[in-house]
Design a protein around this nucleic acid. Structure first.
Lengths: 134, 134
DNA sequence: CTGGGTGCAAAGTGTTTGCAATTTG
DNA sequence: CAAATTGCAAACACTTTGCACCCAG
């Protein structure tokens, strides 16, 4: 029998496409959808099939290299695991975005999670408002 | 002038279908997808079109009566809002969701926003992790 | 060589929209 | 009666799968 959810073996060959996707993710701090990554690749010259991007990302999530989450838009977004992160303060009016971070939230988030018995915690926070110039 | 993003007027007529959806939500504590709600309605005898269920739920979210979130499965799940603002602690594995809230984040968010000259601040936070049973 | 990898096109999902018939106020 | 609402079917957007060809090991 096979262990449920455990891939017997993951050969993982090194291919141009995978290297390209991997490289993109290395340079990105934020969550990006498969399609966005596909676009960047294309614009960058490395033509990789959308299908391959999807399959590569999935494989990376399964092997624990990526974190995936669903956007409110219904798309799946990926980001390299455990990269130092920050949050966004976005202006509703002009779209100006400021990166912010603070130990307070981080601590609170993990404390609350812990309190409820959750492990391997990560979180996502966005703050919206109207900036000074608007 | 009109406020941006505000529907001019929402007549909201009382119909059998809306009452049915509303009634289901009243009896549910957990998040349910539009399709699940549609199923319950059908099983219960109140036949309501899936389209109508979707439209009704969307309207309720917009009027602030419902909370919506995306499941890892890509579906949108709805639940009646518990009064007061809160955040979600979601299990990556089984999807179990716990509502959490704390003055710490709220204060931090508005402080940071203020610091950058932002007004009319609101925010969105989700914490992900693996719950105790998984 | 040979099996994993790739990518096009087609199939699947969940959700939204066009539009005629129906219902509410 | 007029306007809002419903619901079917078709349209949509994102993702997955079938399958023939290709390339890394």
């Amino acid at each position: 029998m096979d262990q449920p959810g455990t891939t017997p073996a993951a050969p993982q060959r090194r291919t141009r496409q995978r290297a390209a996707v991997d490289q993109i993710l290395t340079h990105l701090e934020e969550f990006r959808t498969a399609q966005q990554i596909h676009d960047v690749l294309r614009r960058q010259g490395d033509s990789v099939g959308l299908t391959t991007v999807y399959r590569t990302l999935q494989a990376m999530v399964e092997s624990g290299q990526l974190d995936a989450l669903r956007t409110d838009d219904g798309e799946t977004a990926y980001r390299r695991c455990s990269s130092g992160h920050h949050h966004h303060l976005v202006c509703r009016s002009c779209g100006r975005t400021v990166e912010v971070s603070g130990p307070a939230v981080e601590r609170w988030a993990s404390a609350v999670a812990d309190e409820h018995g959750f492990r391997d915690v990560s979180h996502d926070l966005e703050i919206f408002g109207t900036c000074g110039s608007c």
